[in-house]
Simulated assay, not measured.
Amino acid sequence: MEIRIRQENQNDYPKVHELIEAAFRNIEYSDHKEHFLVERLRKSDAFIPELSLVAEIENEIVGHILLTRLRIENQTESFESLALAPVSVKPEFHGKGIGSRLITESHSIAKRLGYTSIILIGHKNYYPRFGYEPTSKYGIKTPFNVPEENCMIVSLTEKGLLSVRGEIKYPKEFFE
């Protein structure tokens, strides 16, 4: 089974919409509106086309990941970072490494584009395998009311989180 990762294009939008809706349909900790979040983010200033990726198997889209711009701000400084939200895999393709491939490929592209960190809200047992750690370890706070262990960050460079402290400022599309 060959998994091909490529940049999403506009022709993919309907299939990606269906995929995201299906991927989150039975997830307990979900508002089941992730597909609408992706639509809003594509139209925002936070959107980076190179960081909206799909996974294909035999020309069928079976996974999607989106990374968008965000900021970490404190009283004196502002730091650019990325939000990983969401990563989606068709339920019948779970456990085949598709999510892992999307995450590692998105990390590689983000680093190549000059980004130094990525933040997410996700499962505390899944994302640490990709280097994610609680944001609280770095004095970074989330505006959402989520358990501390579910808000995580990864540094894409050796000193990507050096002196980064503050509150995460998500694009307004996350709150609509």
Rank of each mutant, 00 (worst) to 15 (best):
D12N: 09
L51H: 12
T104S: 02
A46K: 05
K43D: 13
I48C: 15
F93T: 01
G99F: 07
Y13A: 13
G139D: 08
A55G: 06
S108M: 09
K124Y: 03
N9A: 03
G95R: 08
R4L: 14
F130W: 09
L53H: 02
K172N: 00
S155R: 01
I48E: 14
L113E: 03
F130P: 12
S88T: 07
S78D: 01
I65E: 05
F144C: 15
L70I: 05
E8A: 01
F79P: 09
V164T: 05
E34W: 08
M1E: 05
E21K: 10
K33S: 14
E8V: 02
L84H: 10
P86N: 01
P91A: 04
L70M: 08
V154P: 06
N125I: 04
S78C: 06
F130L: 08
T116M: 07
L120W: 09
R42K: 07
P14C: 13
S108K: 13
K43Q: 14
I98R: 09
E21R: 07
N26V: 09
E56G: 03
E28C: 11
L102S: 05
R40M: 00
P86D: 00
N74T: 01
T104P: 03
S30L: 11
R40Q: 05
E80W: 04
H107I: 08
G97R: 08
E18H: 10
E105Q: 15
G122V: 11
R6V: 04
E50H: 12
P143A: 13
E39G: 04
I27E: 15
R112K: 12
F47N: 14
A23F: 00
L120V: 11
Y13K: 15
R4G: 06
R112N: 11
S81N: 03
Y13F: 15
A23K: 04
I5P: 15
V164H: 05
P134C: 06
Y115K: 13
I72T: 12
I109T: 14
F130M: 08
G63W: 01
T68P: 12
V38H: 10
G131E: 04
D45H: 14
N26F: 11
Y29W: 13
S44R: 10
S81H: 06
I98W: 02
E60T: 06
E18A: 12
A83R: 08
I109M: 14
H123T: 11
D12V: 09
V38G: 11
L162C: 01
K33F: 15
I57K: 07
S117L: 09
L19T: 04
H32A: 11
L113G: 04
E18M: 10
I153Q: 00
A110M: 13
L161F: 03
E34M: 04
E50W: 11
E21P: 06
S106L: 13
R71T: 14
E58Y: 10
L70P: 07
V87G: 03
C151S: 09
T142H: 09
G63M: 03
